[in-house]
Design a protein around this nucleic acid. Structure first.
Length: 281
DNA sequence: GAGAGTGTTGTAAC
DNA sequence: GGTTACAACACTCT
């Protein structure tokens, strides 16, 4: 599910629900999903929820904070004391069954609220971290692509250093953070650049255009509340609408939004890649 | 029913 | 050092 816009959407909604609430009890159903001593933070109050790249940080009034990465299929689902998801939607069947077979961790909060960490594929994780450990974790990521720190000069200079396909470089979190497969495909289509083009062969103008397009599609994604594809569509309170305006991702054989030529699907570095061979040069 | 594919990313291997 | 391949896991689609 989550790329930067999805994670941003999630933390905004989470913050509204859990800020100020106390973590009363934590149940870990799958060891691998929670690293650290969860008992140490029972009783702590969640003071804020923030995002760094695709990491979610729960700031606690404690020595330890919580960090989480959703990877491919992680979800945070919040229910209030009436069991309603995100304080919205009347109770759906899948909510009545929480914790479900995919629930890996459950947080019981004050006011009888609950927060469920669901993760079908168990790639995601939650862990306790000291300020020092967080610093180390954050250091691994370059600034967000939408950060003012990522200037035209910065981006071009980074691209000059690698001969990998531009799509791979764009998704490299040590160059810029937050661009996953969907938005990488769309940004390349919007800027009319071939995903196969070696990064170092982009001209300065192309590099500027691509960075601008990347910021545009990511901001659009946040505006639309993220993209929700396949079975994630029905996650009440957390489903987004970027998929309704997506340019090329998942649209093989459909007309390119730039030139109407059919969109092609190829594989680059093992990832499905959608692009228009006619206008993306 | 076998095999490929899935929005992520750390690590091992070339 | 740069780059690619694969693994972690569970499920859907062909």
């Amino acid at each position: 599910m989550p790329e930067l816009p999805e994670v941003e959407t999630i933390i905004r909604k989470l913050r509204g629900h859990v800020q100020g609430k106390k973590i009363q009890k934590i149940q870990v159903f799958r060891e691998k999903s929670f690293q650290g001593n969860f008992a140490a933070i029972e009783g702590a109050i969640i003071t804020d929820v923030v995002r760094k790249a695709k990491l979610i940080q729960f700031v606690l009034d404690s020595e330890l904070n919580l960090l989480s990465h959703l990877k491919m299929t992680g979800q945070f689902i919040y229910t209030d004391k009436t069991n309603r998801v995100g304080g919205g939607h009347p109770t759906a069947d899948w909510v009545k069954n929480l914790p479900s077979t995919h629930t890996r961790v459950q947080f019981d909060l004050s006011d009888q609220a609950k927060l469920f960490f669901n993760d079908q594929r168990v790639f995601g994780w939650i862990k306790t971290a000291t300020a020092e450990q967080e610093e180390l974790e954050f250091l691994r990521y370059a600034p967000d692509v939408i950060s003012p720190l990522v200037t035209d000069e910065y981006f071009y200079e980074k691209l000059q250093r690698t001969g990998r396909p531009i799509k791979v470089a764009l998704m490299d979190n040590t160059i810029v953070s937050g661009v996953g497969n969907i938005y990488a495909c769309d940004a390349l289509n919007l800027s009319k650049i071939s995903p196969l083009k070696p990064a170092k062969t982009l001209s300065r103008r192309e590099s500027d255009r691509l960075l601008d397009a990347s910021k545009t599609v990511i901001l659009k994604g946040i505006e639309m509340g993220g993209a929700t594809i396949d079975n994630y569509r029905d996650v009440a309170g957390f489903s987004g609408h970027y998929q309704d305006v997506v340019r090329v991702y998942g649209r093989e054989n459909q007309p390119c939004p730039n030139c109407s030529h059919p969109i092609a699907k190829i594989k680059i570095a093992g990832r499905g890649t959608y692009w228009c061979p006619n206008c993306q040069k």
